[in-house]
Amino acid sequence: MYDTEAIIRISNVNKSFGRLKALDNVSLNVYPGEKVVIIGPSGSGKSTLLRTINKLETVDSGQIIVDGFDLYDPAIDINRVRMELGMVFQSFNLFPHKTVLQNLTLAPIKLRHIKREEAEHTALELLKKVGIAAKLNSYPTQLSGGQKQRVAIARALAMNPKIMLFDEPTSALDPEMIGEVLDVMISLAKEGTTMVVVTHEMGFAREVGDRVIFMDEGKILEEGPPEHFFQNPEHPRLRKFLEQIL
């Protein structure tokens, strides 16, 4: 299916929080342009796995190579790797002391050394794309949850990353706001962005995912294209999970 080399290579990764085994010998490759959706019950390790990709969580053993860089090679600069990884959080984590526009321009100006006017121009384009250009001078506290998350997606995109990571981006939203965030993510997927998404939105997984991964108790129990995955789930725990949520 993919000729090119994997852009994310996770090999035999283990991680424990005290006695809890969060990741149990997990391996996963993600290829450029691929949309991987990770589902599973809470506490299954799916968010932990996602957070190991930009080293917000460190693993106890195993190897993670992102964009050709081994995250555990002491010679690499993790900050350079993170610049290529956009991250969207469940709780948005916008900078409350900065306006919407400043949230988008801070990192490009300071880290990519882009001129202010240019960074603001790009930011405005991105805000138009996520449908929130009118709020550019607002502060995050003045926005609704759905608006905050769209700004957070635009902030990550402003760094022009190679990969976008989403950690349950709609889980903290009121139901009527989920659609507007998913729409943004769907249009992003259509542009060919490499995406790894942890979510409970099965409709999104079915529509956008090239590959769906089911995790439970720190293990990947099943993976496959969404049609097969949702129509003929093989693992009994996946069947039970799908029964419960669908």
Binding site: N54, N79, R80, R82, L85, L111, A152, A156, M159
Partner: peptide, 18 residues
């Protein structure tokens, strides 16, 4: 300050000092 602020910042590529 909420720890999510630090996570958002380092995820963009800022180091600890920045």
């Amino acid at each position: 300050i909420d720890k999510g602020q630090r996570e958002a910042s380092v995820s963009l590529g800022f180091n600890e000092v920045q």
